[in-house]
Design a binder for these strands. Structure first.
Lengths: 361, 361
DNA sequence: CTGTTAGCGCCTTCAC
DNA sequence: GTGAAGGCGCTAACAG
């Protein structure tokens, strides 16, 4: 046995098989496409044998070129580091499997330039459609898809000016659910922490819904009303993160002060509402570094997204129906590929509140 | 503005561009391939204009078909749920970017059947090479790659009977490093917890190295020697997990007993050495459920892999050079694609011990 | 410098 | 039933 990986020998083509089976290419093609009814059992057997002997496998590139469709769809991911993305992907894969599609996964790793390049690439490979979890910057980058380009379905976030189906979390309902949970549990200093949200629709919606829910208290602004704040955390900028966390620290310390002074049950209790898992992780790491292992005694943490460490640390979360989001996205796309022409649809799926120790006092 | 995503209009072909520019296909092709020197500035300008006007983008399928190479490589992943995988992927992507390759990511999601299907698919798409983080079951499934098939590079684990380059962690050194750390910190009841390892080379090596390191104590088996155990945790089988964890519980309780009885400093101290992050997570979740939030006071946990929650929970880890593993894998593969014919190579990269509170007493 | 010609591997009429 | 011929979009000799 050789220990040297060999160079690839030329693969057999349909012509080789035809020769080997002593017939024409047409019959081979028919065999490949399952048109068995028009093949004599005898010929069929010969073809089968020839294919096996040559270890023949049809070249999909060539087939795609000829037929004009290749059953390929693109899956453009903003950030695989986010567990959300991986979970959505599982739904996508399952649906593709079921519908006979093959997803080409492209990971932009939060870089706009990458997103652009991959989109270009998917286009030149003539994928039949694209599922886009866009970075969200601007419509511009997404020029080739949606509208006049190849069919597209947006996941998690819509993009201004881009007409396409979209599926994701019901952000308004989710943020409201979380906010109400915190209010119901008596927190009176609530910080909604979110990455820069001007460009990302889902973040916008969550933040807006948070503020509305805060305003919907029985006596907003009143003496017993909880106070809401929005804090922007730009995870891509260490300096900015530093600054924002410092602001948070001051607020937490101030609340503790109140508590010490009052020494009663009606001290200020602060809760952090993270707009997604990456933010929640950043917050948790910081709090742990600052207050030690029992940081949760000082601050409550609630997060949209339900990362694997949430259960471990007892953090309350709002779990997104990630698998279904991915699955539905593919279904939508498939319909578009098959020619459905309805107006752009939105599919908003509900999140599920998972209450853990963190927000129970 | 319409709100209905339109159907894809037919894309322009090279012939269209030639007609539009009033020239032949050859010149267009030359332009596309950057052979500017043989094009008059005037013709070149006309081509440029025509391409822009038609929004032409060359069809990669056709190019690939013609040239016989498509710059595509397959990346077969066993489990994207494992943070390790995502990190390796980042290295792969960076390297591909640098080398002008395009990775087709395929996620087997721990299903052998998926692995087989994707491999088949990659083959029929004539990718130029494959990077395989195999499920590891048997050489059989991997028939199409390595050896006589398309060039392949294995990641993390080798597969019996499959001759191919491989890159991964130096498992022996890593397991030894971890074991020694635990011994040095005075743990005397050490459990190496690992998924079924008969089929997966990296797990085998880690387990073997653990046992060896235990035997290498100054007085193995002696009165003051630490005792080592191997526990198999089949994460795919809930019942089995239950059973294994129960065994662990008994051991931990027994150790506690010893401690209570002795009521001195020389009581049995137990440490868990998880062979990878999924195992570590399973253990941590169980321990937390059983002993509450301060489970770490009862048991120490050390894990190969450094998931994001490790820092948060203070678990000691051995971090793999994941990014570099991915990067090197692509480099190896690229060399093979370019025709390098050396014997199969192994590239073992060192892990880094990250000491956290969990294993310090 | 530029265009013509012949395929790459496969599918699809259209005859036999 | 079966096969020959033409073409999908592109590239790579060849001629001019």
């Amino acid at each position: 046995m050789s220990t040297t990986p060999q160079a690839t020998p030329r693969r057999a083509t349909i012509t080789d098989v035809a020769r080997e089976a002593g017939t024409g290419k047409t019959s081979i093609s028919r065999y490949l496409n399952g048109e068995m009814s028009v093949l004599s059992p005898e010929l069929r057997a010969r073809i089968e044998a020839a294919i096996a002997r040559l270890d023949y496998q049809p070249n999909q590139m060539a087939r795609g070129l000829k037929r004009g469709r290749n059953r390929l769809i693109g899956m453009l991911l903003a950030d695989l580091t986010n567990p959300y993305t991986v979970e959505v992907l599982q739904g996508v894969e399952a649906a593709c499997h079921a519908l006979g599609l093959m997803p080409l996964i492209c990971h932009a790793a939060n870089e706009v330039e990458m997103e652009r390049r991959y989109l270009q690439l998917l286009t030149t490979y003539r994928v039949e459609g694209v599922i886009v979890n866009a970075l969200g910057v601007r419509e511009e980058t997404l020029r080739p898809v949606g509208g006049g380009g190849i069919p597209a379905v947006l996941v998690d976030r819509s993009v201004d000016g881009l007409v396409a189906d979209m599926v994701g979390l019901d952000n308004r309902a989710a943020a409201e659910l979380g906010t109400r949970h915190l209010l119901d549990n008596g927190f009176d200093d609530i910080w909604f922490v979110v990455q820069p949200f001007e460009q990302v629709s889902s973040r916008q919606l969550r933040e807006a819904a948070f503020r509305e829910a805060m305003s919907a208290q029985s006596d907003p602004g009143g003496k017993n009303a909880a106070r809401g704040h929005t804090l922007v955390l730009n995870l891509a900028d260490a300096v900015d993160v530093e600054r924002s966390l410092a602001e948070l620290d001051r607020a937490i310390d101030a609340a503790a002060h109140t508590r010490d002074a009052a020494a009663t049950g009606n001290a200020a209790r602060v809760a952090l509402f993270a707009a997604n898992a990456p933010v929640a992780l950043c917050l948790a790491l910081h709090l742990k570094a600052r207050y030690g292992a029992d940081w949760q005694a000082r601050v409550a943490l609630l997060s949209i997204d339900d990362p694997e460490w949430a259960e471990l640390t007892g953090v309350t979360t709002i779990r997104q129906p990630t698998y279904e989001i991915g699955y539905r996205a593919v279904e939508f796309l498939h319909e578009r590929i098959e020619g459905v022409q309805t107006t752009a649809r939105d599919c908003l799926l509900p999140g599920e509140l998972i209450v853990r120790a963190s927000t129970l006092r």
